[in-house]
Write a protein that binds this DNA or RNA. Structure first.
Length: 574
DNA sequence: GCCGTTTTCGGCCCGACTGTTTTCAGTCG
């Protein structure tokens, strides 16, 4: 079983225990363990073989034994027992908005509802309001939430969709009178790869007016609720958005709170308690009720004796301990990116000419651009043969001549790693290139041993400088190839082969925890836009977000180097 | 069920909002 599947088992266990009415802290333990497994930069199967499961955050004696059982037998007696006791469809019912464990249990026990369709039918039939404590309004809300669930499919959307929508709302809020500051907080500010809903925060001393204006925005489809300090709405785009409004003097704690993550916040509040303080979005309070107000986040963390922690690190993945020990990394910034290693043109599946892509890269402020079109093995995109590659080289030289010193073009290729691990060009052709990036696009479902060996063969090929989108995953689509990540990272480090962080929001591959593990293993990383058209150079920020979530400093990221250093690096690789 | 520079047992964050309520339970973040 893979990390995601194991984590899912423990999340399901937590859901089932909640419906059962189990003690909340036992439930939280399963959720913490699930999160710890998801945050793991390594394959849990490798960790299991090393008998190191207890080192995973949130895994103790009992959960270690359960993982061991899962690994050995692919089953878990305890889980099977729970599923016999509680209908599995209730897990989906629990994920309907405004339905929590208490209501799910009552729907089941009192109305014999065990699936979302059954719940929908009962709501339409007016049967939910028969329950004590439920009325027509609750019934209508639940029905609306089921509708919303259908529209949004899996609940979360790509950051590439969410961020532009949020930016538009932020711009609109900033124009309102009496608004002193606006931030998109939540998982968006942490640059998570998917976003459940938008969390917006405004600083103002007139919250009522701001909330009134917000709920009247043209993007708003309907208002879900509006109180004195917060409102939540459904947007026409299908996203849910909520806005908190706090006075400027309290903006620091409010922003910190709204940014999360929840686990990070809980941890901070525990720290506050240790200092005899209570922390909420409104500020700190000491034991006699005296307040400490924080207009900015720096003061929030300083009050706890910590340096400010960048939002991208706030996942309760050891960042608080690192901050306390002065071990926080100095994270790479978008402004430090100086070049691009991955771009396509009309020679294969790009939308623009080489000249147009070069021009766009120059305008994006880049010092160098490596053209890396596909190779012949990828027939459907008209991959380059060695001859067409040589023709492309001539065009590249001509464009370079026109550009002069304003941008340095390098000739590379995104070479197919074939199903047997060999590359799609002969050695002489590979040697003629300035940079060889190797990628897997086909046969992604090969068994673990085979596809791992395939990637290892590519890494060990002396011509290969970089591996493109190493795991082949798509953020909301395709599962990563079944790779043994540990050995691959070690081989890349050994051979000095850089690993791509593909910045396209549909890929984001490597992902954050793998990027972190890669740098810890000694690999270099490259943040690449995989540009297929001029606008794609703007995708870089998503890749930088992943890199920062992966704790990467600038020195871990190859594109922070200038063109001379890159040429030296390539030359050193032969 | 996890965890320990105050603890190996007894803790484990804090508040807003809604709906159905005469004081609060449930859900959410």
């Amino acid at each position: 079983m893979r990390n995601r599947e194991v984590a899912q088992v423990f999340d399901d266990i937590a859901d089932l225990l909640e419906i059962k009415g189990e003690m909340i802290y036992r439930i939280l333990s399963y959720r913490r363990a699930a999160e710890g497994i998801r945050s793991l930069g390594r394959d849990i199967r490798e960790v299991w073989k090393e008998h190191a499961l207890r080192e995973i955050s949130g895994v103790g004696e009992a959960i270690e034994a359960k993982i061991d059982e899962l690994m050995r037998t692919k089953k878990l007696e305890f889980f099977e027992g729970l599923r016999k006791e509680i209908p599995a469809g209730l897990i989906d019912v629990l994920h309907v908005g405004d339905v929590g464990p208490k209501r799910a249990a009552r729907f089941w026990r009192e109305l014999d509802i065990t699936t979302v369709p059954a719940l929908e039918k009962a709501a339409r039939g007016g049967r939910l309001r028969e329950l004590s404590g439920m009325g027509a309004k609750s019934e209508a809300r639940i029905l609306q939430n089921i509708e919303a669930m259908k529209r949004r499919e899996r609940g979360r959307i790509s950051i590439g969709v969410a961020l532009p929508i949020a930016e538009q709302l932020v711009a609109r809020l900033k124009q309102l009178p009496g608004v002193e500051a606006v931030e998109a907080a939540g998982s968006l500010r942490r640059w998570r790869e998917t976003v459940g809903d938008l969390d917006l925060l405004a600083a103002s001393d007139a919250p009522g007016e701001v909330l009134q204006a917000f709920t009247s925005f043209p993007e708003v489809e309907r208002v879900l609720g509006r109180g004195e300090t917060k409102a939540s709405v459904d947007l026409h785009s299908g996203l849910k958005a909520q806005l908190w409004v706090h006075p400027p003097a309290r903006f620091g704690t409010a922003l910190q709170y709204a940014t999360g993550s929840q686990a990070h916040n809980v941890h901070l509040r525990e720290l506050a308690q240790n200092r005899g303080l209570s922390l909420s979005e409104h500020g700190f309070k000491d034991s006699v009720g005296r307040e400490i107000l924080c207009p900015d986040e720096v003061k929030v963390y300083a009050t706890l004796g910590l340096p400010w922690i960048p939002p991208e690190l706030r996942e309760d993945r050891d960042e608080i301990a690192a901050a306390a020990a002065g071990r926080l990394p100095r994270l790479v910034e978008e402004s430090q990116i100086r070049g691009e290693f991955h771009a396509h043109t009309q020679w294969t599946d790009g939308a623009s000419t080489l000249q147009e892509m070069a021009e766009a890269a120059r305008q994006a402020g880049l010092e160098y651009l490596v053209i890396t079109d596909h190779t012949q093995g990828l027939g459907m995109v008209n991959g380059l043969t060695p001859e067409r590659l040589r023709e492309q080289r001539r065009e590249l030289d001509q464009v370079q001549a026109r550009l002069g010193d304003s941008l340095r073009l390098l000739h590379g290729a995104e070479v197919e790693i074939l199903a047997d691990g060999s590359l799609d060009f002969d050695d002489r052709t590979l040697a003629s290139l300035d940079l060889v990036a190797a990628s897997i696009h086909t046969s992604l479902r090969q068994p673990r041993e085979k596809i791992t060996a395939r990637l290892l063969a590519a890494i060990r090929n002396p011509h290969v400088d970089m591996i493109g989108h190493p795991t082949g995953r798509l953020v909301l689509g395709r599962e990563a190839a079944d790779l043994e990540v540990g050995p691959i990272l070690e081989a890349a480090a050994d051979h000095g082969v850089a690993l791509e962080i593909n910045a396209h929001p549909e890929r984001l591959d490597l992902k954050d925890v793998h990027a972190r593990q890669a740098w810890a293993t000694g690999c270099l990383l490259a943040i690449n836009c995989d540009a297929h058209k001029p606008e794609d150079f703007a995708l870089r920020r998503y890749g930088v977000g992943v890199a920062r979530r992966g704790w990467l400093p600038a020195e871990a990221v190859l594109n922070t180097r200038g063109v001379d250093q890159i040429l030296t690096w390539l030359h050193g690789r032969g």
